[in-house]
Computed example of a mutant assay.
Amino acid sequence: MTDTPETDLPETDLPDPDLPELPPRLALAWGVAERPERVPRRELSIERIVEAAVEIADAEGLAGVSMARVAKSLGFTTMSLYRYVTSKDDLLLLMQEVALDLEFPPAHEPADWRAELREWAVFTFELFRRHPWVLDVPVTGAPVTPASLRALDAGLRALRSTPLDDAEKIATILLLNGYVRNAAGLDRDLAQANTAGTDAAAEVGPGLADALRMLVDEVRFPYLRPIVERGTYAAYGTSTFDDEEDVGWGLERTLDGIAAYVAAREAAGGPDAGAVPGCVPEEEGVAEALALAQRYTSDAKVKKAAARRKEADKRVREAQKRVRELEKALRDSRKAEVEAVRAARERAERDR
């Protein structure tokens, strides 16, 4: 039995006539959809279907989940599932709802926004670690289901003592959630590569540092080359993903940035004081960067220069390959020369 949350989906009653009509999957998630009649001889329920699907996803990943696979695991026909869940998309949303049903730690008293946000991020990271398939569920919009909104609410609670306005608080949670999802995805991908033996750096093994010193030259990689030469990159590339060091370092730097903004907002006089002094308005900064990117990607001169750079890179690689071949030929020649001298010495000793 896999580790699934003990809480079930909401009990579903007759639809509330005062509520706007919701898509079937949202109505199921909120418990406002009418349930189908029970199967008399053997009870099948939405809860059992979702629990079985979560168990399959925990064991095999999201690719292992299908309506037929879930039905088979429960001993029912595929068509019987559609009486409860109308599509696989609906099933995925309900699975995610169960996986995200997480109890966050209680609030700190007095409030400590940084400590509480840290706990929120770490708890979310561990949720993704227990159910890594959640990272593969497509993001189709803002959170609108009970469990996802409870997670958002817990994050907003952590920011209750800050002077940030509503939009800034939500943006802060999105920023932190993006970091956590990226870290959890990296953790999962590295674990899978290690298990499958497809980690290219690990395949090279101890010789990785020497190989990179030969391949990473100062012309194409002027800023990476010194790091490779010192062996720092190879050591980092072959190290295992560490929660406290790798996740923690990035998390603390993200919190540092938030702290700087919170302090600037406090100095500015709170959420109603307008723009934060010293901070470039995000609309201006992003618009300028987008405009630059569009100019670079569409400018004919830039494209021509990029093509010349790629061609030069190709010639450099070919020249480096030729150099390595010549160096190997030189080493082989020296080895053959040493062997010839040794053989000649042995013959001379035998002839005496």
Rank of each mutant, 00 (worst) to 15 (best):
P5W: 02
T7V: 13
L9I: 07
T12C: 12
D13A: 15
L19G: 03
E21N: 08
E21A: 15
R25P: 00
L26P: 03
L26V: 09
A27V: 03
A29V: 02
W30Y: 06
A33P: 04
E34V: 05
P36Y: 06
P36Q: 03
S45G: 09
S45D: 05
I46V: 13
I46M: 05
I49M: 06
A59M: 04
A59S: 11
V70C: 04
S73A: 15
F76E: 05
L81P: 07
L81A: 07
L81E: 04
L81Q: 06
V85N: 02
V85E: 06
K88L: 09
D89T: 14
D90S: 15
L91D: 10
L93M: 09
P105L: 01
A107T: 11
T124L: 14
T124A: 13
F125Y: 13
D136A: 14
T140D: 14
V144F: 04
A147Q: 02
L152E: 10
D153Q: 14
L156V: 08
R157Q: 14
S161C: 02
P163Y: 09
D165E: 09
D165P: 03
D165M: 02
A167C: 10
E168T: 08
E168I: 01
I170V: 15
L175W: 12
N177K: 13
N182Q: 15
D189C: 00
A191V: 00
N194Y: 11
D199V: 00
D199L: 00
A200V: 15
A202P: 01
E203S: 12
V204P: 09
G205Q: 07
L208T: 02
A209G: 02
L212G: 02
E218P: 01
V219W: 00
F221D: 01
L224E: 00
V228G: 02
V228D: 03
F241R: 10
F241T: 08
E252Q: 07
L255R: 11
L255T: 08
D256R: 09
A260W: 12
A260K: 11
V262W: 05
A264T: 12
E266F: 04
A267V: 05
G269V: 11
P271Q: 12
G278D: 07
A293P: 01
Q294N: 13
R295P: 01
A300D: 12
A300P: 10
K301S: 12
K303H: 14
R308A: 01
R308I: 01
E311A: 08
V316H: 01
E318K: 05
A319G: 04
Q320N: 11
L326F: 08
L326N: 10
L330Y: 12
L330S: 10
S333A: 15
A336V: 00
A344Y: 03
D351N: 11
